[in-house]
C-alpha cells in the first residue's frame, strides 16, 4: 500500500491518520501505565522536582531521536550520532572558550559551529549512502569512527570546560518547572511533526521508506531526499551537542558513547518501523519519555544497576513485540 504518494486519495489518507493515532495511543497508554506503576510504588516519583529531572534527562535523547526518526523513516539508520555529538561539542567548546569573545557572541558562534559540524557529517552520511547506494548502516559505522577520531584529534583527548556563566546557568533554568532545554526539544518536536505530516517533503520521505522505486518513478528526486534526511539528523545532533554542554558545562571527546542506541530505541519504541515508511514524531516523543521514565523510576525503586539494565532491555523487546500485534490489528 502506498500511504505516501502525495496524490493519495482522501480515503487512504484518513485511514493512515486513524492508524497513526491508534499506534500513538498504544504507546501513550504504555507510558501512562509506567507512570502509574512508579507513582504507586515509589514515594517521590510524581513530585515537581522529579518531573523536572525526568524532562532534563529525556532532552538530549529526544533531540537525537527526532533526527533519527527522519533517517529511519526513509529506511536508513544513523549509527554516528553519538560520535558526531562529541565532535560538535568539542568544536563548539573550542569556539566558546576562544579568548577575547564576549559571552553572547561566544555562545552564538559556538551554536552555529555545532550545528554546522552536525550538518557536515549529515551531508557526508547522506551523500555517500545515496550516491553509491551503500547501506547507511555501514556508512555511518565509518563516520562513527571518523567523528570520534576527529573529536579526539581536535582536543588531543582533553576535556574543554569553563563556559560563560550565563550559558551554564541557562542549562539549569526552568519555566514553571519545565527545563528550558526540554522546551528547545519540544520546539524541535513541533517542527519535526509539522514537516513530516503537513508538508509534501515529509510525505515523500514516508514514500521513500515504503517503496523507494515507486517514489523514484513518481518523479521524486530520491537522492536529494535521502541527503536531506541525514542532514536533518546531523543538524539535530548539533543542537543536541549544545544542549549537552549547557546541561553539563563540559565538552569532551569521549561523550555520547552509545547515544545512538538510545536514540534508535526511542524511535523504535515510539512505533517507527525499522524498515522505514511508518512512524511519527509524536511516537518518538513518547518513546523517549518511556526510556526516561523507566531509567528514573527504576532508580527510585532502588533496584540494582544490573537489574535496571535487564529491565530496560526487556521493555525494548516487549515494545516491539506489542507493535507487531498493533500492526496486525490496525491493518486496513
Amino acid at each position: 500500500m502506498n500511504t505516501s504518494d502525495v496524490s493519495q486519495t482522501g480515503q487512504t489518507r484518513i485511514a493512515t491518520t486513524t492508524k497513526t493515532v491508534l499506534r500513538e495511543a498504544g504507546i501513550g497508554i504504555a507510558l501512562i501505565v509506567l507512570i502509574l506503576v512508579f507513582s504507586m510504588t515509589t514515594q517521590h516519583f510524581l513530585t515537581a522536582s522529579n518531573v523536572t529531572n525526568i524532562l532534563t534527562q529525556v532532552t538530549i535523547n529526544l533531540i537525537l531521536s527526532i533526527g533519527m526518526t527522519f533517517v529511519i523513516l526513509i529506511g536508513g539508520i544513523d549509527l554516528s550520532v553519538g560520535s558526531v555529538l562529541a565532535f560538535c561539542a568539542v568544536v563548539a567548546g573550542t569556539v566558546m572558550t576562544l579568548p577575547g569573545l564576549d559571552p553572547s557572541t561566544a555562545v552564538i558562534l559556538a551554536t552555529l559551529s555545532a550545528v554546522a559540524g552536525g550538518i557536515f557529517f549529515g551531508l557526508l552520511n547522506g551523500f555517500i549512502s545515496a550516491y553509491w547506494a551503500i547501506p547507511s548502516f555501514i556508512v555511518t559505522l565509518g563516520t562513527l569512527n571518523i567523528a570520534r577520531g576527529a573529536a579526539l584529534q581536535v582536543t588531543n583527548a582533553s576535556t574543554i570546560y569553563s563556559f560563560p556563566a550565563s550559558f551554564n546557568a541557562f542549562g539549569s533554568q526552568t519555566l514553571y518547572g519545565i527545563p528550558l532545554l526540554f522546551l528547545i526539544a519540544l520546539v524541535l518536536v513541533g517542527i519535526g511533526w509539522f514537516v513530516l505530516t503537513k508538508t509534501v517533503f515529509g510525505r515523500v520521505l514516508y514514500g521513500i521508506g515504503n517503496n523507494e522505486e515507486a517514489a523514484r518513478l513518481a518523479g521524486h528526486n530520491v537522492f536529494f531526499y535521502k541527503i536531506a534526511a541525514f542532514t536533518i539528523c546531523g543538524g539535530a545532533v548539533g543542537i543536541g551537542a549544545i544542549v549537552y554542554m549547557a546541561r553539563l558545562n563540559i565538552a569532551s571527546p569521549i561523550i555520547g558513547i552509545g547515544f545512538e542506541l538510545n536514540a534508535i530505541a526511542a524511535v523504535i519504541i515510539g512505533g517507527t518501523s525499522l524498515s522505514g515508511g511508518r512512524g511519527s514524531i509524536i511516537g518518538t516523543l513518547l518513546g523517549a519519555c518511556i526510556i526516561g521514565v523507566l531509567a528514573n523510576g527504576l532508580i527510585l525503586l532502588g533496584l540494582s544497576d544490573f537489574m535496571r539494565q535487564m529491565i530496560t532491555g526487556f521493555v525494548i523487546i516487549i515494545a516491539v513485540v506489542l507493535d507487531k500485534y498493533r500492526e496486525r490489528l490496525t491493518k486496513v
Binding site: H44, T47, N50, N53, T56, L248, I257, A295, I299, G302
Partner: peptide
C-alpha cells in the same frame, strides 16, 4: 544511603545523582 555505578561518565553521573537526590532529598 545508596551506592551505584555511573560507569565513570559525566552525563550518567548527572542523571544518576539527580535521581538519587529525588529518592533521598
Amino acid at each position: 544511603l545508596d551506592s551505584r555505578t555511573a560507569h565513570w561518565e559525566t552525563e550518567e553521573a548527572n542523571t544518576l545523582f539527580s535521581n538519587m537526590l529525588t529518592a533521598h532529598p
